[in-house]
Design a protein around this nucleic acid. Sequence first.
DNA 1: CAATATTTTCAGAAAAAAATGAAATTTGTC
DNA 2: GACAAATTTCATTTTTTTCTGAAAATATTG
Lengths: 175, 175
Amino acid sequence: MAEDHEISELTPQAQNLKNRYELEVEGIDYFVRFMNLLGLPRSVGEIYGLLYFSKDPMSMDEIVKRLGMSLGSASQGLRTLRSFKAIRTTYVMGDRKDYYVAETEFRTLIGTFIKEEIMPHLDSAGQRIERMSHHMEALQDLEDKSFLQTRLKKLERLKKGAAAVLPTLVGLLKL
Amino acid sequence: MAEDHEISELTPQAQNLKNRYELEVEGIDYFVRFMNLLGLPRSVGEIYGLLYFSKDPMSMDEIVKRLGMSLGSASQGLRTLRSFKAIRTTYVMGDRKDYYVAETEFRTLIGTFIKEEIMPHLDSAGQRIERMSHHMEALQDLEDKSFLQTRLKKLERLKKGAAAVLPTLVGLLKL
DNA sequence: CAATATTTTCAGAAAAAAATGAAATTTGTC
DNA sequence: GACAAATTTCATTTTTTTCTGAAAATATTG
C-alpha cells in the first residue's frame, strides 16, 4: 500500500504542474472544437488554444515544439489566424523571430469571420439568384413559372434576411 | 453561316427546356454551397436543391436517377434532411414508395439546425469550462492563476453570449 | 405468409482535406 | 551584400470524409 502511495501521490509542485498542463490540454481541445464548428482545421484550433492560454508571446518554433506539429502546418495555421485577426505579432527585443499573441476580443474575431467568410458567399448567392430569376422569367409553362417564382422569392428573402441579421449578430455579442 | 444557325438556334420548346434545366442546375448548386457552409456533404445539398425546385414530390429512386447518385448516398442524405426537418414525406395514392417534398420554411430549418447541431456543443463547452476552472483554482502561481481566471471568464462570457444570441437569431430571421 | 418492392446498412473504394518536411524565398544582421 | 536565421511554399503522404453498391432488413401487397 505504501508503495502505491508513493506512485500515485504527487508533491504539491508536481500536482501544480499537472493542473496547469491539464488545463492547457483541455483549453486547446476547447478551441479545436470551436474552430472545427467554423470549418477550420484542427491545427488552427490547436495554435489558437495554445496562445489563448499562454501568458507570454510565442514564436513559431515554440508552437511547433509544444504542439508537435510540422512547420508547414504552423505557418499555414498562423496565416489563417492572422487573416481573421485572431492573433497578432509582438516585437520581442533582441530576437529576430516573430512572436504571436492571441487576440481575445471574440467580437472582433467573429466579426472578421463573418465579413471574410460568410459575406462573400451571400454576394455570390445574390448573383446566382439573379441568374435563376432570369431563366425563370423566360419559361413558357405558367404554372411551373409561378411555382419557381415563389421559390426564388423565398430564397431572396433568406439571403436578404441573412445579410441583415449577421452584422447585427456581431453587435448583439457585445457580451 | 446558315449551318451555324441551324446548330445554335433552338426551337422555343427546346429553349424552354434548357432554361428549366439550367435553373435547376444552378438551384442545386446553390444549396450544395449553402449546406456546405453548414458542414453538410454535397449529396445532402443536391437532394435538397432538387426537391426545393421540384413542384412534385419525388421518390428516392427518382432522386437517384436525376442526380446520378448511389442509393446509399440518397438514403443517408434523406435521413439527414429529415433529421433537420428540411424535408417531409408525402403519401402518394396507389404507390408504395415514399415521396419527399422540401420544407421551405427556412426559419424552422435553421432553428432545428441550431438546436440539434450547435446547442449540444455549447453544453459540452460549459462543462469543459467548469473542469478548467477547477484546475485553475488549484494553481499555486498567483500571477498565472489570475491570468487564467481572466481568460476563463472571457470564455464563459462567449459561451453565455452565444447561448443567448443563437435562439434570438432564429427569431430575427422571421423575414 | 409468400413474393416482391423499397429502404437501410455497412464494408470497401474513391475523393477531399489536412499535415508533413524539405527546398525556395524572405528577412534581418553584421 | 554575404551569411544565417526565420518563414513560406508546395509536392507528396497521411488522414478523414464521403460515396458506392450489394447484402440485409423492413414494409407492402395479393
